[in-house]
């Protein structure tokens, strides 16, 4: 037998083994979804696809209705999670290392566009979430029964800003600390709870002020009287763990509610 034929025989047998075998069946239960039954099963059996129902209203699959803005917000969140994890391999959140690690990432690390992907992806996500909110408003999709999902969306919008805001500090360059200084100085002006805020001087016991730079709202936000290593660490933890967990949880609720509220909205 010629070598070629033998190869062909081996290939066919391998294909057959793969197609009939335990390994494939354990991963892909349904096979090519070429019948309606299989289309249902493939969506139901896959954890990612089962975020969708098996069929959706024809008017709401169209690009011109959703602009894919919600879906792409979620996708960008995933991209940011992935690139963020890669960045964490190289980045140390200390005043000594943060800046130089950033420099190394650009100059030394091979395939060094993770920082770019992460930064531009973050800008893109903010814009995408804003567009998504605009779309939901313009189609009146916040109306009953979807009121609460709109509220969850508003919280997601705030979390998206906070994610971006806490990440802004991490390069520890001039841009970072001064942007965060501008932002965190606002906390100083919180009524009652900030040292420079209205009425905080009213809170005093026997002449001793209760609200001072060592315990006011800004202190709670940045963890110190001035922006420093503590702030960096605090923002790092919030940026990499706290807020992403909160956002992921709320996204799960958001998606679940879309299903429970009758799918993406359409005319009543």
């Amino acid at each position: 037998m010629s070598l070629y034929l033998r190869f062909k025989q081996w290939r066919d047998r391998a294909k057959e083994n793969w197609n009939e075998g335990q390994v494939k069946r354990s991963i892909f239960r349904v096979g090519i979804p070429n019948t309606d039954r299989k289309r249902v099963l493939v969506v139901l059996g896959n954890v990612f696809l089962h975020l969708h129902p098996t069929k959706v209203r024809s008017s709401s699959v169209r690009l011109r209705f959703t602009w894919c803005a919600g879906g792409l917000s979620f996708f960008l969140f995933l991209v940011l999670t992935l690139t963020g994890v890669l960045l964490m391999f190289y980045y140390r959140p200390t005043v000594e290392n943060a800046y130089t690690d950033m420099k190394d990432m650009a100059n030394v690390v091979p395939f060094g566009i993770m920082r770019e992907m992460h930064r531009w992806g973050a800008h893109a996500m903010v814009i995408m979430v804003m567009l998504h909110m605009f779309r939901v408003f313009m189609t009146g999709s916040y109306k009953p029964p979807r009121e609460f999902n709109w509220v969850i969306g508003v919280i997601l919008l705030v979390l998206t800003f906070l994610l971006s805001f806490t990440g802004y500090l991490l390069p520890w360059d001039q841009l970072a600390i001064w942007a965060i200084t501008v932002g965190s100085n606002m906390a100083k002006a919180t009524p009652v709870a900030g040292v420079a805020g209205p009425f905080s001087e009213f809170l005093r016991i026997g002449g001793v002020p209760l609200i001072h730079p060592g315990d006011d709202a800004r202190f709670i936000l940045i963890g110190a009287k001035e922006l420093g290593g503590i702030t960096l660490n605090r923002f790092y933890v919030l940026h990499c763990v706290g807020i992403p967990l909160a956002a992921a949880t709320l996204m799960a609720m958001h998606f679940w509610r879309i299903r429970k509220d009758g799918g993406i909205s359409g005319p009543l």
């Binding site: 289309r39 069929k55 959706v56 209203r57 008017s59 005319p267």
Partner: peptide, 27 residues
């Protein structure tokens, strides 16, 4: 939208393809 909202479209393949293409373009 009303003309289409009573009909249903299969998620696989129609919606999945739209999402797939959107994701590729975005990437």
């Amino acid at each position: 939208e009303k003309s289409l909202s009573d009909q249903k479209t299969w998620v696989w393949p129609d919606l999945v393809y739209i999402e797939f293409i959107a994701v590729i373009l975005c990437t």
